[in-house]
Design a binder for these strands. Structure first.
Lengths: 331, 331
DNA sequence: TTGAAAGCGCTACCAC
DNA sequence: GTGGTAGCGCTTTCAA
């Protein structure tokens, strides 16, 4: 049975115990360079002895800075996000900023409520793959520092992983392998990335004389991909480009279940190159620098928080990585 | 270029605009039942009009409650954790409590620093799969409300996923299939779960007259499993029980690369039944109720925070789920 | 049912 | 280099 928890000492108590003023103790933690080094050492020793830990809300109340940012993603269980989150966390932590993680469960209304509450609990928000309307995003960004990842809204700082380029490469790759009919397995319709990818595929396919059948939208989940495999096979296409690796992995499983060999009978391309997705055979996919995206987004956000009122935009290239799920079109 | 951000109104401003006192506005948000309903409505309207959002640090300063908890995991990129985190988040959110997510990167010292800082930023912590010493954990729990997941420390409230039982079933399953030599592919040595699983495997194997070779420790990462496949094949064992699904998936890939068919030539069992891991063939594994574990941990924690000083322990059963990576021992 | 006032723990200004 | 003091935005007695 846990004992009663001892009260944490306040700054005042430390001051009394160390025989200095509250201001001095405060400076030990905030601006130690203003103090004589020996004072710092002495006060620190007393504070540690007493188990003093600065009380964050009080500091936040005074400074107006909360010392925390939020990272908001649609679905933390989707393996695309952890690397972004991790990188953002690390970057923020280096600056002594804490990271609140929130998950909107792919629900638009939850996203709005969340952002409103986050406004008073954080100094700013990194909003990843937002499902909100352009209008709503622009509006939020006037109320609270906001940086987008994978969402392209004019007037709002953003980091975009340019998978469209990779998708064009993907179509070229398939065309070069003599594929003439390709399925694009669409992701969530409110996803900016899906719009980009789909448009890139359609555009390049037309140029290369490749026919495209679009199936979807789909939630980016394994089961959806698996179920979609049947529909894919019905189209008579010889290759699939999936919205992301999760869907692609599902298609792989669905094809395996249907006895369709990959890449001999069907070629398959994913997107994101999620490390955790190690398929057999290894998946041809488009690789985006997701860690870099997370880190950059935090850099942009901290600049915004520091009052730099400028719109920053970064587009990160995402090239095609050819592995073993693509091969020549069956004769 | 973003415009200058308007200052958020304070409670006082709302009070002035609504022609009531600050106390009244405060009560609208904290204890509306003390007010005349029409007052609540009227003040709310004014507040919404002005875009008022309660300032959290100020509230925290006054009440002594921060209204946030933390969930600490070793590695957010490990797919075992997201379901736990999600469930914890949801449960906390239902109670109007925010969730801070922290990641220790599998580093013990980072874990300590983190917990100290979290002490003043949160009302309590759910510590998942901690790598800390028993001593350190017990000590922390006297300083700050703390609930463990998958770590068994007497005196500290905890939720344990009992994969040991599933591991015993796994050994029985293999023994019934005539396997006589099995590899246990160990996880991190500081992991409580690994200790449990390893002991269960060794114990039951001895009873069933099955020889066990322990290989490891391994970080629970795909590449480690893939590399371990070679060592597994060298032992001459006919089956592998891996610490978790991530390692198992790596072994699957490693065996495929080596031309070893599963389950015909080698049987394979994982642990955790991570939804995202959909392998081909589907993995025989031990399924733990990870969502339930996360939710329960939050329940326990909130009770602790509310001052209920009792140690609560819950063991959740994790049974074996037989799929297609296990078969009769090769002749 | 509502208002006035004190104060949570800390920082920052102004003295010294 | 260090101390005194006011006040951040809110909640919560107490009084009306």
């Amino acid at each position: 049975m846990p004992r009663a928890r001892p009260e944490l000492p306040t700054l005042k108590k430390v001051a009394a115990a160390a025989g200095v003023s509250a201001s001095t103790v405060s400076r030990v933690y905030s601006h130690p360079q203003l103090l004589r080094p020996e004072t710092v050492t002495r006060v620190r020793a007393v504070a540690d002895e007493l188990g003093y830990v600065p009380h964050h809300p009080a500091r936040a109340l005074k400074t107006g800075r909360i010392g925390a940012i939020a990272v908001v993603v649609p679905d933390i269980a989707n393996p695309f996000f952890p690397p972004v989150i991790r990188a953002a966390e690390d970057r923020a932590h280096d600056r002594d900023i804490y990271t609140l993680l929130a998950d909107t469960d792919e629900m638009t209304e939850k996203e709005v409520t969340l952002l409103v509450q986050l406004q008073r609990r954080t100094d700013g928000v990194v909003l990843v793959s937002s499902r909100l309307s352009t209008e709503a995003i622009r509006n939020r960004s006037t109320l609270h520092p906001l940086v987008l990842v994978n969402r392209d809204v004019e007037g709002v700082s953003r980091v975009l992983v340019d998978t469209a380029a990779g998708m064009r490469e993907a179509v070229d790759h398939l065309a070069d392998l003599a594929h003439r009919h390709v399925v694009y397995l669409a992701g969530p319709s409110s996803s900016w990335s899906d719009g980009q990818r789909r448009a890139a595929v359609l555009d390049r396919a037309q140029r290369r004389g490749v026919r495209v059948t679009v199936l979807g939208p789909h939630r980016p989940e394994h089961d959806e991909g698996m179920r979609a495999a049947a529909a894919v096979l019905e189209t008579g296409a010889t290759a699939v480009i999936a919205f992301d690796d999760v869907l692609a992995q599902g298609v792989l499983a669905g094809c395996a279940a249907a006895g369709v060999r990959i890449p001999q009978e069907m070629s398959l391309i994913g997107c994101d190159d999620i490390l955790a997705v190690r398929t057999a055979p290894p998946l041809t996919t488009v690789r985006g620098p997701s860690r870099q995206a997370g880190a950059l987004a935090v850099d942009f956000l901290l600049r915004l928080i520091d009052g730099v009122r400028e719109e920053t935009v970064e587009r990160l290239p995402a090239p095609l990585v050819v592995r073993e799920t693509t091969g020549p079109a069956p004769a």
